[in-house]
Design a binder for these strands. Structure first.
Lengths: 218, 218
DNA sequence: CCCCGATCTAGACAATGTCAGGATTTTATC
DNA sequence: GATAAAATCCTGACATTGTCTAGATCGGGG
């Protein structure tokens, strides 16, 4: 049946007072992200999200089992964007495995800084896996698989499992910590530097790490 | 305890003693930490904290301006413990500046794993500085001063400000990210390894970074 | 001794998440 | 096509939360 998509579009434009919204699920996710950006995770409210979407306070229940489930779905969406950002960064880098790893790391940090609320939600909200046991959330797994592959490429075929694990821990820990400190405003020690130099400092820290990975030859 | 009553013994202190309860301020902080450990930051409730402390739901208002202020005070307490843990680790390490830096990093991660709820609160709750503008919270500053000093020692006297900043960003980012990933359960890739090897992997990642800091000679 | 301030309790208010039941629209079946 | 079933949304209610206001209780300084 070709009907569904057409119908929803017409609903969306015409019926402001309509009973059926059309695509409430997507609208709720968008509204939740906007609410999150304005009020933060602590000040998040399901009812406010419903208001922003133009529906009653109980409407979300038909699309998400709970407020946490809505946020979990948003987190999954965030992971998908993160994967896309890292993939783009890797593709743009092209060159050596080390360059790809550094690019992925910079992409990770850039994503966090561009979407701080999403980043916080992804790593601080309740874990999506717990809330969607048989659901979709493979995005985190895909993000990790990318990281592992790139690290393994840098280390070469001779690396042991423990060596790879250590490199992953260091690489992920570094970019994750940098991202978190930056978006949380904890990196006040970068304040005295002009913005351009700040960026360079962060980027250099990542590049140097990537360089140090291969150099040690383990 | 020899005291006839808990109330009278408080009097001599800072004038901010307990009258009815004994020392409600401290009791509330302890109760809040216990609540945090049980229910997490999301499930935290000021009323439940008051119940646990055995007082009415409005009693905390006389010691903390708001629920956030209570949590901020707890966060400050957490920073003090973090400083103590890092100082102890540094003192125990003794040796070279590089060894001290690695020890401080391991202490940072160990603290986070021992007090995950506190760690989350410290870096995820509302920022303490905002809530206590003219107050006490110098603990975060002290923790950072320690880090900076140790990093500067490793780099030597010839290091520029930008070089120090980059090293601080990398060092702090690495241990902070490691700590966060570990307590959040995101480091599932360490699952296949036995616990002892897991510890070794994390410790090695920190040690190798510390070693790479001085080696580059910048 | 008595009053005053510090400390705590009790009650109330708006706001929140969730559940139950009714209204309305869409879809599937005859 | 009409009609029953399903999906979608609304209104109302409940318990719980943080915070405010007012009253009670205790201790120490006048």
């Amino acid at each position: 049946m070709p009907a569904t998509s057409e119908r929803t579009e017409r609903r969306g434009q015409a019926g402001r007072g309509g009973y059926h919204h059309g695509d409430l699920r997507a609208a709720l996710l968008a509204a939740a992200e906007a609410e999150l950006a304005e009020n933060g995770l602590a000040g998040f409210s399901l009812r406010a999200t419903a208001r922003r979407a133009g529906v009653s306070h109980a409407a979300p229940a038909h699309h998400f089992a709970s407020a946490d489930a809505l946020l979990a779905a948003l987190a999954v969406l965030g992971f998908e964007r993160l994967v896309a950002a890292m993939e783009a960064a890797i593709a743009a880098a092209g060159g050596s495995a080390r360059a790809r790893l550094a690019a992925a790391g910079r992409g990770y940090v850039a994503f966090a800084r561009a979407n701080p609320h999403l980043f916080r939600l992804m790593f601080f909200g309740k874990r999506p896996e717990k809330l969607a046991p048989d659901g979709v959330p493979q995005a985190p797994g895909r993000a990790f698989a990318m990281l592992r592959q790139t690290v393994a490429d840098v280390l070469g075929p001779g690396a042991s499992e423990a060596e790879i694990a250590r490199a992953i821990a260091a690489a992920w820990g570094l970019v994750h910590g940098l991202a978190h400190l930056l978006i949380e405003g904890a990196a006040g020690f970068l304040q005295p530097f002009p913005p351009a130099e700040r960026e360079a400092i962060v980027a250099d820290a990542i590049d140097r790490f990537a360089a140090s990975l291969g150099a040690g030859s383990v």
